[in-house]
Every structure is written in structure tokens, then in C-alpha cells.
């Protein structure tokens, strides 16, 4: 069993070293996921750094990242493994006079196996982070598939036998909560709800991404974003969008963020017309003509 992080404090420090500013809850949960060897399910609104967390763990632990991007219609063949039919057909055609039993044994061997992310992650000998991204996009059947892999870290291939992980990967699942995941899957995971950060942490994050923006501007920006999030918007601005906004303001060479500048650049953070109207009205920004 490898140790991923020594302690929660160690997790904070090493994640910060690779540029991910985690709060105490996040760090503690990441530490526990490593030490208990359990998958970590990260849920939260879009753009709060769920995927980034997995990447940061990878970088901090000097591991390799294996990523499984989920989408509707993802199946076993794309997630786990697949036999290379075409190559098998060629092999059979080339067999000529060879006995069928021999050919049969031959075509179901390592050579004809196409490993997909889940199997790849389990078979790797070196430290691995397995990122199952947007797990809420898959069908319920794939969740069933994940259960075996995530609780026992093993995969059964009928022709080859059961492959057991030599070294447990650090598994991160992310979800936007567009549907309820099954209780069975949640039960096997540690759960972390990532939300928008508080003002101080967001300021630190934006400053670390866009250091040229300057403390004063970022403070105003974070304050404004905080107010936007308090409004009832369809899509509240994410951290990624705050960072984009800081870059925009920098490019426009705006020294500070006043109502006028904010109204002109609101499109960077709010992507619905009704949201922009609402923000302009509530925050009394100057209306753009």
C-alpha cells in the first residue's frame, strides 16, 4: 500500500505546491481517500475545480493520470476492454491449416486485447490516479460496471481470468449532479461537495493564476463575483470564469472594476441574457446600449 499523503496538512502543502489551493475539508478528504484506499466522489457546480483536483493530486504524488471521460452511451467496450476483432479475423484467416483449438487459444491472448481506461488503471504498476469524469452522464449500467472495479479493484475477463490491481489507483469520480447517482455507488465512495470558495480563497486562486492583475483589482473582482453568486441566476459564475474575467480586465488595461467596466465585460462571467439583465438591474450597473 502506498501512502499518497502523510496527513491533511501535508495534503494542503503538496497540493498548494502544484498550484491547487485546497481548503481544509478538501485536503482532509483527499488525505482520507488516499489512506483508506477508497474512491473519492467529487460533486459540485461546473467550474469549481473538480477535474483540476484530480490533476493536482496526480502532480503532487508524481503519479500518472488515466482518464475516463463519461458520456451517454459509454459501454463496457469503451470503459473496460475490448477484443480486437479485426486483428482476430486476420489471425484466423492467416492460420491456414492450424487446428482450431490452437487458434482459439491464440486469439484470446494479451496480443488481441485492447485495454481501456479502467483496465489500464488497474494493471499499472506505478502510482496511478484514475479520473472518471462526469460520471452522471453515463447510463445506469455503467455504474454497475464501476461497482466491481471500484470496490474490489479487479476486473474479470472470461477468457483471461480475473485481473487484480497490484497497486490500488487513487480514484476520483466527478459529477455535476445532473442526475442522482445510485446509492450503491455513493456508498462505496468518500463524498466531497466542492462549492464556490470564500472570498479570501478565491482571491488567492485568481492571484495565483493571474498574478499581474494586482491585489486591489482582484479584490474588487472577487467581491463583485460574490455578489453575483448571491443573486438568483441561472448559472452563477464559476472560478474559471472569475479567472477569465481577471484576464479580460487585464487585457483591457482596466485599473479597477467600476460599474461601467463591469457592465461592459459582464459577458465574460454571465452567459444568459436574463442573467445579465438581472445583474445589471440588481447591482445598478450602467446599462450598455
Amino acid at each position: 500500500m502506498v501512502t499518497w499523503f502523510e496527513s491533511p496538512a501535508d495534503a494542503v502543502k503538496r497540493l498548494a505546491d502544484v498550484g491547487y489551493l485546497a481548503d481544509d475539508d478538501t485536503a482532509t478528504t483527499v488525505f482520507l481517500a488516499g489512506v483508506l484506499g477508497k474512491p473519492l466522489l467529487v460533486e459540485g457546480p461546473a467550474g469549481v475545480g473538480k477535474t483540476e483536483l484530480a490533476k493536482a493530486v496526480t502532480a503532487a504524488a508524481d503519479a500518472a493520470l488515466v482518464r475516463l471521460q463519461c458520456y451517454e452511451g459509454l459501454d463496457e467496450a469503451r470503459a473496460l476492454y475490448e477484443w480486437n476483432y479485426k486483428k482476430q479475423l486476420l489471425r484466423i484467416q492467416a492460420a491456414g491449416a492450424q487446428a482450431w483449438e490452437e487458434t482459439h487459444d491464440d486469439i484470446f491472448s494479451e496480443e488481441f486485447l485492447l485495454t481501456r481506461p479502467l483496465l489500464t488503471a488497474i494493471r499499472r504498476e506505478d502510482p496511478t490516479v484514475l479520473l472518471v469524469d462526469e460520471v452522471d452522464k453515463t447510463d445506469v449500467e455503467v455504474e454497475g460496471l464501476l461497482l466491481e472495479v471500484l470496490s474490489d479493484f479487479q476486473v474479470t475477463i472470461p477468457e483471461l481470468g480475473t485481473v487484480v490491481a497490484t497497486r490500488r489507483p487513487f480514484v476520483v469520480l466527478t459529477s455535476n449532479a445532473s442526475r442522482e447517482l445510485s446509492e450503491a455507488l455513493k456508498r462505496r465512495c468518500l463524498y466531497l461537495h466542492l462549492d464556490y470558495p470564500d472570498a479570501d480563497r478565491e482571491k488567492a486562486i485568481v492571484l495565483s493564476q493571474v498574478p499581474e492583475a494586482g491585489e486591489r483589482l482582484v479584490e474588487q473582482l472577487v467581491e463583485m463575483v460574490g455578489r453575483l453568486r448571491e443573486l438568483e441566476l441561472k448559472k452563477a459564475p464559476s472560478i474559471a470564469e472569475s479567472v477569465d474575467w481577471a484576464r479580460t480586465l487585464l487585457a483591457l488595461d482596466a485599473g479597477h472594476l467600476d460599474a461601467d467596466v463591469a457592465a461592459r465585460t459582464l459577458g465574460v462571467v454571465l452567459k444568459h441574457v436574463s442573467d445579465q439583465e438581472r445583474a445589471t438591474k440588481e447591482l445598478r450597473l450602467a446599462r450598455t446600449s
Binding site: 491533511p8 481544509d24 475539508d25 482532509t28 482520507l32 460533486e43 455513493k186 456508498r187 461537495h193
Partner: peptide, 17 residues
């Protein structure tokens, strides 16, 4: 560390925001 204990309990027991 009470906060760490809270985080640990939250991660293991509470799976819905």
C-alpha cells in the same frame, strides 16, 4: 482536531449536499 473529524464524518456519512 475537531474540524478534521467533522470533514471525515461528512465525507463518509453525508452523500447529498
Amino acid at each position: 482536531d475537531r474540524d478534521a473529524l467533522r470533514a471525515a464524518y461528512a465525507a463518509t456519512l453525508v452523500k447529498r449536499p
